[in-house]
């Protein structure tokens, strides 16, 4: 075979693969839409945006309580994780002795790799009883937020650290030449210079929190209701899909696909925001 035709064949194989890989996203969206279409046609989208309860077999598709639970839990998680994550990065970069810094960094990376189901197991056997002692039933919005915070903290810490490492040498030299204290150098030079990346990291972390399923499912109680306190059990959109998908049929199944579409739209909007503010997608 002449090398020319072999090259042409190689090119076609590569193109076909790339077509499949990049068409996958389209296929996923098409299938989500196709599966949710029957119930959208029957009931209309407005029925999903109500809070009169989630009884899909009886035609009540109120997603609002679960949407609120998802958002509240992610918001709370990032409120806990963002300061801890940024402070972790500062600790690693500026305050820890080299050996401790390396060990701490290693711990953060390991934490990022702990499967959510394992964090859920730990949360259920350790964190939930602690919360139960304060206010029953223990499995609650708060428990979910704490576990989520642990999961997304590495994302914030690692993006912040990468951003700090990329601050140009001249900035440090300029700060030193001005006689700035360490605190002033960090708070008034380094952090403002990296604000966009840190912000992007936080958005990515929130996106991850919204899409997280297993840990949340295991520790937050799964009662469909609008949360009125930190100690209320709640059910998030993701937990709802995981709980009901295995047996749902008909309109019930279709309505789960609608909730999947809503979730995807939310997460992708956050990821787009992160991209615009100049963040890199960190596969951590």
């Amino acid at each position: 075979m002449s090398p020319c035709s072999r090259d042409a064949r190689l090119f076609w194989i590569l193109s076909a693969s790339a077509l499949i890989a990049s068409g996958l996203l389209l296929l996923i969206l098409v299938f989500l839409a196709k599966e949710s279409w029957p119930v959208i046609q029957n009931a209309g989208l407005s029925k999903f945006m109500r809070s009169d309860g989630w009884y899909p077999t009886e035609g009540a598709y109120g997603l609002l309580p679960m949407l609120a639970a998802s958002m509240a839990m992610s918001a709370l998680a990032i409120i806990i994780a963002a300061p801890l994550g940024v402070a972790s990065a500062l600790f690693c970069r500026f305050y820890a002795p080299p050996l401790i810094s390396r060990m701490y960094r290693w711990a953060i990376i390991l934490l990022a790799g702990i499967p959510s189901v394992v964090l859920g197991l730990w949360g259920l056997t350790v964190i939930v009883p602690l919360i139960l002692a304060v206010s029953p039933p223990g499995t609650s919005l708060l428990a979910g937020s704490i576990i989520l915070a642990l999961m997304i903290l590495p994302t914030v810490a690692l993006t912040t650290e990468a951003a700090l490492a990329a601050v140009p040498m001249t900035y440090w030299q300029g700060a030193a030449a001005l006689g700035l204290s360490k605190e002033a150098t960090i708070l008034r030079v380094a952090l403002p210079a990296t604000a966009a990346s840190i912000y992007a990291g936080i958005l990515l972390a929130v996106a991850r929190a919204l899409g997280e399923t297993m840990a949340v499912l295991m520790v937050s109680g799964n009662v469909v209701q609008l949360p009125s306190s930190l100690f209320d059990p709640v059910r998030t959109l993701t937990a709802n899909i995981a709980l009901e998908m295995a047996y749902a049929t008909g309109d019930h199944r279709a309505s789960l696909f609608v909730s999947g579409l809503v979730l995807t739209a939310l997460v992708l909007a956050l990821a787009a925001g992160a991209r615009r503010s100049g963040g890199q997608i960190v596969h951590a």
Binding site: L24, L27, T238, L263, I281
Partner: peptide, 18 residues
């Protein structure tokens, strides 16, 4: 590909099921 990487895993699961 970047968008696909951002799709929540449970949604990929929904697609896989369908």
């Amino acid at each position: 590909l970047d968008v696909l990487a951002g799709v929540p895993s449970i949604v990929v699961g929904l697609f896989g099921n369908a």
